[in-house]
Computed example of a mutant assay.
Amino acid sequence: MKEFQLMDGKTSDKEWLYNLYQNAMKPCIKATWGWNEEFQSNGFDNNLKPTDWKIIKNGLERIGGFVLKESNDHLWLEMIIIKPEYQQKGVGRRVLTYIQSIAKEKSLPLRLSIIKANLVRPFYLKLGFCQYDEDDSFYKMQWHS
Rank of each mutant, 00 (worst) to 15 (best):
C130V: 15
D136H: 08
D52L: 11
Y98G: 01
S101T: 11
K104A: 14
N118Q: 06
D45S: 14
L108E: 04
S101Y: 09
G92M: 03
I56E: 02
L68Q: 03
E85P: 01
D133L: 08
A103V: 00
K126D: 10
E61H: 09
K140Y: 15
L60A: 14
K106R: 15
N23Q: 14
C28W: 10
S71E: 13
N23C: 08
M7E: 15
Y18G: 03
F129V: 03
D135G: 05
I56W: 04
L127H: 06
I80R: 02
A24F: 07
R93C: 07
P50N: 02
D52M: 13
F123W: 04
S41K: 15
E15K: 13
Q142V: 15
K54M: 11
H74E: 11
Q142S: 11
Y132E: 08
F138S: 03
N118K: 00
Y132H: 11
E134S: 12
K106L: 13
M7F: 12
Y139I: 04
S71N: 09
D52Y: 13
V91F: 07
G43H: 13
F123Q: 02
G65P: 05
K30M: 07
L119C: 10
W143G: 00
G9K: 01
F123V: 05
N118R: 03
E37K: 10
D8Y: 10
Y124P: 00
K2M: 09
I82M: 05
T32R: 05
E85I: 09
Y132A: 08
P27E: 06
Y21T: 07
C28R: 06
T97Q: 12
L60F: 11
L112E: 00
F4P: 00
R111I: 02
L17K: 03
T11P: 00
E70F: 03
K14Y: 05
N36L: 09
E15W: 08
E105Q: 13
D45L: 11
R93G: 09
L96A: 02
Q22G: 04
K69M: 07
K116Q: 08
E134G: 00
I102L: 10
N23P: 00
G64Y: 02
E38D: 14
K89T: 13
M7L: 12
H144Q: 15
S71V: 07
R94V: 06
T97M: 08
E78K: 10
R94D: 01
S12T: 15
F39A: 12
R62G: 05
S107I: 12
I82E: 03
C130Q: 14
S12G: 06
V91P: 02
Q100I: 10
E61A: 13
E70H: 06
K69R: 15
